[in-house]
């Protein structure tokens, strides 16, 4: 056997090993996510540890999994943040980079045991949305930014002023579901402290163009819209949502109340 052939054999074997590793790495992320959905975070983490460092998807999966390892310590959170930061530094614009930025924002917003850092989280989400306005997670980050703006305990602005400021933003959220959640957040905020029920209703009606996914959540949603519309004099809307509620939730504990609303709005049973 010639040396040349031997050399090629060695190169081929190493390359095959590398491919095997790469293939195994691509599978790693899938397996990690699969275990995560079963709340088996420890096993998911072990699987992620076996993945190569070059596998960005697996490293991202590892970082996000670390956020929920059974013993939640600041050290773990810092590890996760470091991994995500490294991923962003390497490439901030690919899919993994964008997702990593979202979760860096989430770490600042919700995961740090030392306390939430809303200013940092807001900055991260704002920056992400500006850089990638078309990405679903970036848009979701925008909604998180809105939430933090609305309920910022340090702000001296009254809620009404904050809502006005946010309304002026008119964000273009291409992902319809995220757009729906934006309107739900705004609607709920308008209800807080009775800022403006008509504005809340407008937002809810916009959200219902997409529709609530959760069955139980939808019953509350229809009841809120029906009740708000009735209070604010939007008779047709109230009738429509009373009917929707009774059609989908005939055995709900509010069905009797909604039926009374409908009778009151349609005293002779006539359509509006």
């Amino acid at each position: 056997m010639s040396m040349q052939f031997l050399r090629w054999l060695i190169v081929a074997w190493v390359a095959a090993g590398g491919c095997r590793e790469a293939f195994a790495g691509g599978e790693a992320a899938t397996e990690v996510w699969s275990l995560d959905t079963m709340y088996r975070f420890s096993e998911a983490y072990q699987r992620a540890l076996a993945a190569p460092l070059e596998d960005r998807a697996a490293q991202y999966a590892k970082a996000v999994t670390i956020l929920n390892l059974p013993t939640k310590t600041q050290s773990n959170i810092n590890d996760a943040a470091n991994i995500l930061t490294a991923l962003v530094t390497a490439d901030a614009d690919d899919e993994v980079g964008v997702c990593a930025q979202y979760f860096l924002g989430r770490i600042a917003q919700a995961h740090n045991l030392d306390g939430a850092n809303f200013p940092k989280a807001r900055e991260l989400f704002r920056k992400l949305y500006r850089a990638h306005p078309g990405h679903s997670l970036a848009q979701l980050g925008y909604v998180q930014w809105v939430l933090m703006e609305l309920y910022d305990k340090q702000s001296a602005d009254p809620l009404a002023a904050r809502l006005r400021r946010l309304e002026a933003e008119q964000p273009a959220l291409a992902d319809r579901e995220v757009w729906k959640n934006y309107h739900l957040v705004m609607g709920q905020a308008y209800m807080t402290g009775d800022v403006s029920k008509p504005r809340a209703l407008e937002h809810y009606l916009l959200a219902d163009q997409v529709g609530m996914i959760r069955w139980r959540g939808r019953s509350d949603f229809y009841a809120v819209i029906a009740s708000l519309a009735r209070e604010t004099g939007r008779r047709e809307v109230a009738v429509e949502y009373c009917r929707k509620f009774l059609r989908d939730y005939p055995r709900d504990q509010r069905s009797h109340i909604i039926r009374q609303f409908l009778n009151e709005l349609q005293p002779n049973g006539t359509p509006p």
């Binding site: 996510w33 995560d36 999966a61 996000v64 999994t65 956020l67 979760f103 919700a110 679903s136």
Partner: peptide, 18 residues
């Protein structure tokens, strides 16, 4: 909510569906 973040990432990566 914080626990849901990992699930959120998992569902996003796997199917981005309902």
């Amino acid at each position: 909510v914080t626990r849901q973040d990992t699930l959120l990432a998992a569902y996003y990566e796997r199917s981005r569906d309902r």
